[in-house]
Amino acid sequence: MSINNSKPTESELEILQVLWQKERCTVRDVHETLAKKDAGYTTTLKLMQIMHEKGLVERDTTAKTHVYKALLNQEKTQQQLVNKMIDNVFNGSAARLVMQALGNQSASKEEIELIKDYLEKIEGKY
């Protein structure tokens, strides 16, 4: 199945997060990881079947239990979604996004240090 330009929905992104973390999973694995969401097993199964049809995941059917793997690259997908959000929500301003994110969430010291290090690397490029 070829990968198309379908953008994952919010529910599909939750499933992709599990697949990116674990690399290969059965529907049951994904469902149990997402068990706190009030969705039933058949809902998870149907979503993953749709994701397969859309080319977001691949399915290994060689065993009795089908195993799924994400076809979308995590970093590329995150970058595309962030770019779309910056354009649509923050009028193209990455700085507004960062200030909003840091203003609404309390970042740990480690996260702040990572952000500082990243900013220094960016400044070094210019």
Rank of each mutant, 00 (worst) to 15 (best):
Q49L: 10
K116M: 11
V30W: 00
K36Q: 13
T77W: 02
V30L: 02
K76C: 01
D60T: 02
I112C: 08
K76P: 00
E10T: 13
Q105R: 14
A94L: 15
D87P: 01
T26G: 04
E120N: 14
Y68C: 00
Q49C: 05
K84N: 11
G55L: 04
T65F: 06
L81F: 04
T26Y: 00
T62V: 06
K116I: 14
A35I: 11
A70G: 03
D87V: 11
T61W: 04
L45I: 03
G124I: 03
K84F: 06
M51T: 05
E113F: 08
A70V: 01
V82Q: 06
V27M: 03
N88D: 15
S2V: 09
E113V: 09
A94T: 14
R59Y: 07
G55F: 03
L16I: 03
M85C: 12
Y68E: 05
I15Y: 03
Q105M: 11
S108M: 07
T61F: 08
G103L: 01
V67K: 05
T42R: 14
A70D: 02
A101W: 08
E58S: 14
E58H: 03
M85E: 15
N4T: 15
M48H: 03
L72G: 01
S2Q: 08
D38H: 07
T44H: 03
E120W: 10
T44V: 07
K7M: 12
M85D: 12
G92H: 06
L81N: 07
I86L: 05
L72N: 04
K69Q: 15
N91D: 12
K116V: 13
D117P: 00
D29A: 03
H66G: 05
K109G: 12
K121R: 10
L72T: 04
K69D: 01
Y41T: 00
Q17W: 13
Q105G: 01
I112N: 06
L16K: 02
L47S: 02
T43G: 06
A107Y: 09
L97P: 05
T62L: 10
I122Q: 08
D87Q: 15
V98G: 05
T43V: 10
A63W: 02
V27Y: 00
T44D: 01
N73H: 12
L81Q: 13
V27W: 01
L45A: 09
L56Q: 05
V67P: 00
T26E: 04
I50R: 15
K109H: 10
G55N: 04
R24Q: 13
R96M: 14
L102H: 06
N4E: 12
E113N: 13
S11G: 13
T61S: 08
A39G: 11
Q21C: 12
H52S: 13
K7F: 04
G103H: 02
L71I: 05
A107K: 06
G124W: 08
L97H: 06
K36I: 10
Q17A: 15
K109F: 12
E23W: 07
T62Y: 03
T26F: 00
N5Q: 12
D29R: 00
E113I: 14
S106G: 11
K54A: 07
L119E: 10
T61C: 07
R59I: 15
S106A: 14
T42V: 08
